[in-house]
Design a protein around this nucleic acid. Structure first.
Lengths: 216, 216
DNA sequence: CGAGTGACGACATTGTGTGTCGTCACATTA
DNA sequence: TAATGTGACGACACACAATGTCGTCACTCG
């Protein structure tokens, strides 16, 4: 019953009319969460803390993000664009080249050049089990999208699944290597190297006998 | 302050001395959870319900499982045995054959022949977002173990990472195909097919020019 | 000017997960 | 046989996550 009739907190800078609330609620929540996670860790910060720092309520936090983890992955729809690149490529392109092409293009657009920033984010994710799970889920969503794109191109289900999974692996391994390295190797370069490494490791043997039966 | 001095519920069958509590608490919890999940879905069943059906308390449930999801993955340490197979193989074996060998051996030991049972479990997992996440996390743990095993064999980091990720993908894709199919194809066969499909999809082109630059 | 919409605050409630303590069967040792 | 762990569990309390519901207000659009 006690409605405080909130006026927007001190309006230091505003142009035009004043809304009842400051805009950018979602972005404010993301920033506040990132700060608090860096300061005291993910598990130790509560949703009320995040909302409080953003000048909002707990309920509003959950209106913008499905759960506490999601605030770190909220602006990640862009990852699905890799699948779009594959779907829109010329229909006769080689699948493997398609994948490395989409991945390197995506890297050049969104990742390349901001290694420090991404490294900080990855550090937070690595620090918490739940966040690692969510990260895997996001990766899997992209893999699913890639698989569908490849399937629509006429590839058989198993092939599409294997290629999609491989692309997710390639992205993940290359990203980790890129973040761990101190020199200025380009992410795209690491990706090409990774793909080549897999090719040689896999192609070295044309699948002879049913492999040494190593049963205990 | 009200301790009920619980004696074990009706001891219909028991041999030897009677403990204060029935044994197999963990197994009882797993069975009760599986039943309830099948009856009313994962999200709709609460931990108190599970514990109640098992004749235990909520607190005891969380002594055996870290969270509600884990009750479905509790007896999965066996998956790590795939990594052991790889680590113990002769040091000069081919990495790719090593992976398919370990995977098919594992499948033959634990999966092959109980498709219906595994299908029921997978159905529950597929029905809930949180369970899918946890499933991915388990898969990733195996992948990590495989990567370490390959690294200890002297493979470079990127190659080990790519091969480990590929093995996880292969397992996942093959398992899904196996569960979806009605005929009696063997899981090991599907795995070999999947590996071959990836090989041809990847090896078909020796990486010519830097791939058609498909930048929007 | 009046109805609709959308974003938010306020409040209540359920469920998850944890800390803490007491109880008792069992094993160990004196 | 008696004293002393130890381990598994019940009982209780509690913080926090997440959701449902309602009221308030600014902003539209007719």
């Amino acid at each position: 019953m006690v409605c405080h009739h909130f006026m927007p907190r001190d309006a230091v800078t505003y142009h035009g009319r004043m809304s009842r609330w400051q805009p950018d609620a979602r972005e404010r929540l993301e920033r506040a969460a990132l700060e608090l996670f860096a300061e005291q860790g993910f598990a130790a910060t509560t949703v009320p803390q995040i909302a409080g720092r953003a000048g909002l309520t707990t309920r509003t936090f959950f209106r913008h993000f499905a759960d506490k983890r999601e605030v770190l992955f909220g602006s990640d729809e862009m990852f699905l664009q890799a699948a779009v690149l594959i779907a829109e490529a010329p229909p006769d392109a080689d699948p493997a080249a398609l994948i490395t092409g989409a991945l390197t293009a995506f890297a050049a657009t969104h990742l390349e050049g901001r290694r420090a920033e991404i490294r900080r984010r990855q550090e937070i994710i690595r620090s918490d089990e739940g966040l690692r799970e969510r990260n895997l889920r996001k990766r899997d969503a992209v893999s699913d999208a890639v698989r569908d794109a490849l399937t629509r191109r006429g590839l058989p289900a198993v092939t599409a699944g294997m290629l999609a999974g491989t692309s997710a692996t390639l992205f993940s391994v290359a990203l980790q290597e890129w973040l761990d390295s101190d020199d200025d190797r380009t992410l795209a370069g690491i990706m090409l190297d990774g793909m080549q490494a897999l090719r040689t490791a896999l192609g070295s043997v044309p699948a002879p006998a049913p492999a040494a039966t190593q049963r205990p």
